[in-house]
């Protein structure tokens, strides 16, 4: 979020030849943008502040607006002991699950899109539309039968159980299909004449050309996987297998327990960090993948 605001601020620097933006207009746009950033950023700031103070300070209104001195203490507590289970464990679980889902989805969907676009087999378009139809079914609709299947495979409380049911992706298949359709046929023909078999063509030509698309999808799917809530809640009963997003919810007090808000807030901040790192580190590729494809 902040990174994006930064870029747009940089863009509005008056460049020679661009539309004149001087004086009050320039100031106004900047004020509006800064206000927008503040509005968006404020809750995150509050969460950060809350994660650096002590429990009584939060409970006593008004809430502090400046960081306190408990930063190390709170984060240490969150990471290594947590409320039910150390946050470090949940972070690791989430990381495995999100990466597994993103990589798995990309591998499966790029292969199926490749098959659908480049191979002629009976009922090819039927298969495509079958895959496409599953788009209409969100996880929640098929959650009961999926749970049944996972349970019978003995995959409750395993990474496999967390990852596999979420791995098939019509959206990604569809996106890759659309991208492959824009690759000129001559390229496939040139590869055939050059002597490349189908899988060779896939490795040497299709995969490198899809690089930016893969990066964009990885970012989207990683965040999708990271933010899964309902499914991990169902298949993990062992706290050691909790993912961070559901674990965070479970830290909330039920009944008469007292919430350890500083630790919960520290956990929230920690939960945000990996997706932010993924987005920022892949930002360049990600934007290129959304805007244009290398052709």
């Amino acid at each position: 979020m902040t990174a994006r605001a930064e870029t747009s601020a940089r863009r509005s620097d008056p460049a020679p030849g661009m539309v004149e933006k001087r004086g009050s207009a320039l100031w106004l746009t900047h004020v509006a943008m800064i206000l927008g950033v503040l509005v968006v950023f404020f809750p995150i700031w509050l969460a950060f502040v809350a994660s650096t103070v002590s429990q009584p300070e939060i409970a006593r209104p008004p809430m502090p607006l400046l960081p306190g001195d408990r930063f190390l203490e709170n984060y240490q507590k969150a990471l290594f002991s947590g409320v039910n289970v150390p946050v470090a464990v949940m972070l690791f679980n989430s990381l495995v699950m999100a990466t597994g889902i993103a990589v798995g989805k990309i591998v499966i969907s790029i292969l199926s899109a490749f098959a659908i676009v480049y191979f002629r087999f009976p009922a090819r378009s039927l298969f495509f539309w079958l895959i496409f139809l599953t788009l209409m079914l969100p996880v929640e609709v098929r959650i009961v039968p999926t749970y049944e299947v996972v349970a019978r495979f003995g995959m409750l409380n395993t990474y496999g159980g967390l990852i596999f049911p979420l791995i098939a992706s019509a959206t990604a298949t569809f996106l890759f299909r659309q991208f492959f359709l824009t690759i000129p046929d001559e390229l496939a023909e040139a590869a055939r004449v050059d002597g490349a078999g189908p899988m060779r063509f896939f490795w040497d030509i299709v995969l490198p050309m899809s690089r930016t698309n893969i990066a964009a999808l990885f970012v989207i799917l990683f965040i999708y996987g990271w933010n899964q809530y309902l499914w991990p809640l169902l298949v993990t009963t062992d706290p050691a297998m909790n993912t961070i997003v559901m674990g965070l919810k479970q830290m909330f007090p039920s009944g008469d327990d007292i919430a350890d808000w500083p630790v919960i807030m520290a956990t929230s901040i920690l939960a945000m960090i990996p997706p932010v790192i993924v987005v920022i580190s892949m930002q360049k590729l990600f934007i290129r993948g959304l805007v244009d494809s290398e052709k």
């Binding site: 000129p184 001559e186 390229l187 023909e189 040139a190 590869a191 004449v193 040497d204 030509i205 490198p208 050309m209 690089r211 290398e294 052709k295």
Partner: peptide
């Protein structure tokens, strides 16, 4: 055989 295509069909990457 070797073939030269109308749009060249060079591998862009």
């Amino acid at each position: 055989i070797a073939m030269v295509f109308q749009n060249y069909a060079l591998y862009p990457h």
